[in-house]
């Protein structure tokens, strides 16, 4: 996928310590501007959280970074970048497919190792039907899929949206462990400011255009948060 992204870039050098540089990115869908003049970069080995209200263009940005959406501007990945992607949802409710078969689609996957690295017991889950897994189990299977071929970058779309409260910490712990173990750069879309402040290094707040780009810890400032989500937003609303 990075190959496709490479074809769309105009800038090929001087990424320096960065894994990704996005410059003046504009996306129009059906004549409507969904993202306008978005610029940011992501340092290698760090975590960038992409925040914003519903309809802010967060998922469109991830899809654009994957090369799925036509755009203007530049998306420059470091040469040879391998991207792993963790989607928000899978359409598997009525698909007769087991965890073993799903992970097996990705060639060369070491099923045992991938599942063990996300804290799942291969023996008990490999022959389960994918559609019967809980939200947390599914999310970890998806992470196992994404890290199976040792990507340099992981893109996460709302990693906690289908996970119950108790399972969120487990997912974040898993992510932390993987990030440290493999030195992976992580881009995650989230609506949960609380987790973002704690977990990510940098935040990109979107509302069609960039509202804030900088250290995540600054988001604990209520004035900044109000700018990102509109007035009246309190941090405690998102806290667990």
């Amino acid at each position: 996928m990075a190959d496709h992204a490479h074809r769309t870039r105009t800038e090929t050098e001087s990424l320096g310590p960065n894994a990704l540089r996005v410059s003046n990115l504009t996306v129009r869908l059906d004549g409507r501007t969904v993202l306008q003049d978005v610029s940011f970069d992501v340092r290698r080995g760090t975590t960038l959280a992409i925040l914003g209200p519903n309809g802010a263009g967060k998922t469109v940005l991830l899809r654009t970074l994957l090369g799925l959406v036509p755009h203007e501007g530049t998306i420059a990945w470091r040469e040879g970048t391998k991207i792993g992607y963790v989607p928000q949802n899978l359409f598997v409710a009525d698909m007769p497919i087991t965890v073993r078969e799903f992970l097996g689609i990705k060639r060369g996957t070491d099923l045992q190792e991938s599942l063990a690295s996300v804290g799942l017991d291969p023996a008990s889950i490999l022959d389960e039907r994918l559609g019967t897994l809980s939200g947390g189990q599914m999310q970890r299977v998806l992470i196992a899929w994404a890290i199976a071929d040792r990507p340099d970058v992981l893109l996460f779309d709302e990693p906690l949206s289908n996970v119950d409260l108790g399972g969120e910490d487990l997912i974040l712990e898993t992510l932390n462990r993987i990030e440290k173990a493999f030195g992976i750069t992580v881009l995650l879309v989230s609506h949960d400011v609380h987790n973002v402040i704690e977990y990510s290094d940098t935040a990109l707040a979107l509302n069609r255009t960039v509202v804030y780009f900088g250290p995540s810890k600054n988001l604990s400032d209520p004035a900044l948060l109000a700018r990102v989500y509109g007035s009246g937003t309190l941090l405690s609303k998102h806290a667990h």
Binding site: M1, H4, L62, R63, L66, G67, L68, I83, G84, Y85, P87, N89, L90, F91, V92, M95, I97, F102, I105, K106, W145, A146, L155, D157
Partner: peptide
């Protein structure tokens, strides 16, 4: 078969798996 199943489950996932 694997490509069609994966594209149906998630187009983004399929693209990321080349």
């Amino acid at each position: 078969y694997p490509g069609v199943v994966l594209s149906h489950i998630s187009e983004e996932l399929a693209v990321s798996a080349k």
